[in-house]
Simulated assay, not measured.
Amino acid sequence: MTDTTASRTSWYARPAVREWRCPPPPAEVRAFHETLPGYAPTPLTEVPPLAEELGVGRVFVKDESARLGLPAFKALGAYWAVHRILARQPSGTPLKLVTATDGNHGRAVARIARRLGQRAHVFVSGGVHPGAAAAIEGEGARVTRTRGSYDLAVRAAADAARAEGSVLVQDTAWEGYEEVPAWIVEGYSTLFAEVDAQLAAAGAAAPGLVAVPVGVGSLAQAAVTHYRSRDGRGPALLAVEPTAAAPALASLTRGEPLPVTTGETVMAGLNCGTVSRLAWPVLRQGLDAALTVSDADALAAALDLGALGVSSGPCGAATLAGARAALTGAAAPARRGDLAVGPHATVVLLNTEGQEANPHGA
């Protein structure tokens, strides 16, 4: 079902998905990440004022503002994918890694290439702030700025990889290009394994709701794979997108993949018009709900998280904006019913980037 409210938030819900099950991610992914220099679990910060505001038992923010030396979670997927790629290459063979980005993924690929003595070529979409592009160049990568959307930048990167004989390291999949995006999704599984351990250490109940920001859908795919591969009902999974770029909501509402034309948004890392081919069937089967949030609401949420001690850019803060839209206000009783979120529930919000990752700031 869908509706539009005065706060410009659209809504889709399908609670029956919690009965669906899928295979788990590979167990060796987290063990690999633990071997990386500088690896440590990112904080899971409890924020009691948000629990009071949202009318739930406990709220935790998974804070990805400092992951492996970068201000976003993306290195988890990129490191695992590049590790798998290099394992297939003859020892000492140089590679050029090519990718397209709205910011964080490209910087992660560039950082990894530099550390491993490889080259990187990063295509940056038109909406990326010059400061984010400069940060990628600062990692030693060649940067090509493209005009237009992220989807167009992806096409340009794929074309360049074919022309150069380079390796495309993209976090979205299409027909004929699925293996590397699948490895990137597997890499994100470490984040959710950390959440499990951290909730247990905090004496918290298993989450009743996990809110995930959605661009092409790879992180949401990892969330669904993690929580729908285990026994028990599991949490409600809420996808949050910008109003200007919501292909997941459009596709879920239609019941089939539906590319959308994107507009401008401060949530640059979520400004994607097409759901990944790999992610779509998993999201369709395993997401409980999806909604969109405005730039103003995401920026306000980033400010509020900062005041509570959590560094967040608007992409990361979108989950707080989404939780507010779902759990408070006039539509909350029906939406809480769709999500089965009661007053004692534990809620996990994924803060996928720090303020440094998004020069738009808050």
Rank of each mutant, 00 (worst) to 15 (best):
Y79M: 14
A318F: 03
G208Q: 05
G316W: 01
A157P: 00
G215T: 02
L44A: 13
Y79I: 11
L168S: 02
P49E: 00
T319V: 12
R145F: 01
A323D: 13
V109L: 01
A193M: 10
V293I: 05
Q221V: 00
A301M: 12
D151E: 12
T253D: 14
P94L: 00
G232R: 09
L278V: 01
A357Y: 00
E264R: 14
P71M: 10
A340H: 09
A120T: 04
E179R: 15
D288I: 01
P235T: 07
H121G: 03
G203H: 10
S311P: 14
G117R: 15
G313I: 05
C22T: 12
A268V: 15
G106V: 11
A141S: 02
A40L: 07
R111T: 11
L44I: 11
A133L: 02
V167Y: 06
F123D: 10
T253W: 12
G273Y: 03
S7P: 04
R284N: 09
W280R: 15
E178W: 00
M267Y: 09
R162A: 15
A173K: 11
P213I: 04
T144Y: 00
P24I: 10
G103P: 10
I184Y: 08
D159E: 14
T99A: 14
N271P: 04
A197Q: 15
